[in-house]
């Protein structure tokens, strides 16, 4: 084989060049077709709280040892109730922080007294496993201020989210990376 860059035009070189031209045309066509379908910013996974059915699979289906999904508290939506149905199990013995009264399996919700009769509920993310038990309690009877979100300090942003694949409510959506949370806000209607 010659080391001279000006190779003679033989069948092989010609076919090679034709294939390259065809392939580059293909690449160009692909680019053009996708031009309107690209997002410069990229996307991340997030849970649409309006679609979440609290099936509990977030706690187990994530590829991470401890799920990237955690409970988030929208304080502005919270009623600060003394009897919090996201904190207390059904029919609590008394409204105290005793473990047997709590709904959370890992005691990840901290209840602090503010003033009569209001209590603040705070999620300790280190303990939260994303099981959605509190979310269910809060949504079923309360204001729905507790909800699940993908925490992006933990999420590795898999190409195909393993939780999205099994999500019972089909609540996982790709959101733009610069607005990565779907936080709940206060109810708009009266």
């Amino acid at each position: 084989m010659s080391t001279n860059p000006k190779e003679p035009v033989n069948r092989r070189n010609f076919l090679g060049a034709a294939a390259r031209v065809a392939a580059m045309t293909g690449v160009g066509a692909l680019l053009g077709k996708l031009a309107g379908a690209t997002a410069a910013k990229g996307t991340v996974w997030q849970i649409d709280p309006a679609k979440c059915v609290r099936c509990g699979k977030c706690a187990t289906a994530c590829v991470l040892e401890q799920s990237a999904v955690k409970c988030v508290h929208a304080y502005a939506v919270c009623g600060y109730c003394e009897l919090c149905t996201g904190y207390f199990g059904p029919e609590p013995n008394e409204l105290t922080t005793a473990a047997e009264n709590q709904l959370c399996p890992t005691a990840a919700i901290q209840r602090t007294y503010i003033e009569d009769p209001y209590y603040q509920y705070h999620i300790d993310e280190k303990l939260c496993i994303g099981c959605a038990k509190c979310v269910d309690g809060c949504n079923r009877y309360g204001n729905g201020s507790l909800f699940l979100q993908v925490r992006h300090d933990r999420c590795v942003n898999c190409n195909e989210c393993a939780i999205a694949r099994v999500c019972a409510g089909d609540a996982f959506v790709r959101v733009p990376v610069d607005q990565p949370y779907l936080l709940k806000t206060k109810p708009t209607t009266s």
Partner: peptide
């Protein structure tokens, strides 16, 4: 020189093909 020439040639090719495909595929969303 040849590298640059090839780059320009193939770049043009890709660009033309992209524009053609863009024109054909039309609006999406």
């Amino acid at each position: 020189r040849e590298f640059l020439r090839g780059g320009v040639r193939y770049g043009l090719l890709v660009g033309l093909a992209a524009m053609a495909a863009r024109a054909v595929s039309g609006k999406r969303l």
